[in-house]
């Protein structure tokens, strides 16, 4: 059966419901919550602070370190084994690389900024949700950065290009599927994360990125609003479909 309609009635360029909140973890220097459909991420930022082991120190600028972690109950019924796995280490690394071009830590030599991303619930697109949450948490921690980082997944199911795949679409079995998480800086439209899994042509990749840019603009506005809301009236939910 050809994929002509999304199973939950969304339009092909429509994201799931997005909720963003800043300042959810009081002990952290900065924190944020980001939910996209059933994918839920918390990010906490600590630092800049002293970096150990000392040989990792960079005397010319500060470093950023990211930890991506899925909680044991966050999967779809199967218990996720706690602790770092091959997958979570890879995602931690690409998240770190997505932020490296925007973080301005020349003022803080020899220090580190730690970013902890915890997923309480996942339904595909978890690295994108993690990046969106981390980007707000970094801004909330007062870290100097050139831009917020906004991420969304785009892809192809059957012959249709679409935005923000959920697990059911990612695991669609009747036709080939391609899934591409992308992270973009909204002001300069630079891409800081681009991964791909599945079958897709070069032209379709370019079209998919264009489709993603529209969703990115929308997510960026929600992020901005959430950050402003925390400082304007003590942190309230920002909801937008």
């Amino acid at each position: 059966m050809a994929y002509t309609k999304r199973h939950n009635g969304r339009k092909f360029d429509e994201t799931r419901e997005i909720v963003a909140k800043v300042g959810v973890i009081k002990n952290a220097d900065g924190s944020a919550y980001y939910r996209q459909g059933d994918t839920e991420a918390y990010a906490a930022v600590y630092g800049p602070r002293q970096l150990y082991p000392s040989f990792l120190k960079d005397p010319s600028k500060g470093r950023i370190r990211c930890y991506y972690n899925m909680l044991p109950f966050s999967g779809m019924g199967d218990r996720v084994r706690p602790g770092p796995s091959r997958r979570s280490k890879e995602i931690s690394l690409v998240t770190e690389k997505a932020f490296q071009p925007v973080i301005n830590l020349e003022e803080f030599p020899n220090t580190v900024v730690d970013v902890f991303i915890e997923l309480t619930q996942t339904d595909a697109g978890s690295r994108c949700a993690g990046i969106c949450a981390a980007s707000m948490a970094l801004a909330d921690a007062g870290i100097p950065m050139k831009d917020l980082v906004v991420a969304v997944s785009v892809g192809k199911v059957g012959k249709r290009l679409l935005v923000d795949l959920d697990y059911e679409e990612e695991a669609y079995e009747d036709e080939p599927v391609a899934d591409m998480p992308i992270a973009i800086l909204p002001r300069t439209r630079e891409i800081t994360l681009l991964q791909m899994d599945g079958q897709i042509t070069k032209k379709e990749i370019m079209d998919a990125i264009k489709l993603g840019e529209k969703a990115i603009q929308k997510i960026y506005n929600i992020q901005k609003e959430a950050l402003r809301a925390k400082f304007a009236n003590g942190g309230r939910d920002v909801k937008r479909k």
Partner: peptide, 28 residues
């Protein structure tokens, strides 16, 4: 950045004549 002035941190705008400054709202 080229012909734009861009915010580097989360902050409150403080205009003084032609100088644009940001007062940080968070940070160590």
């Amino acid at each position: 950045d080229k012909n734009q002035i861009v915010a580097n941190i989360l902050g409150l705008v403080n205009l003084k004549g032609r100088l644009i400054k940001l007062i940080p709202l968070a940070g160590k």
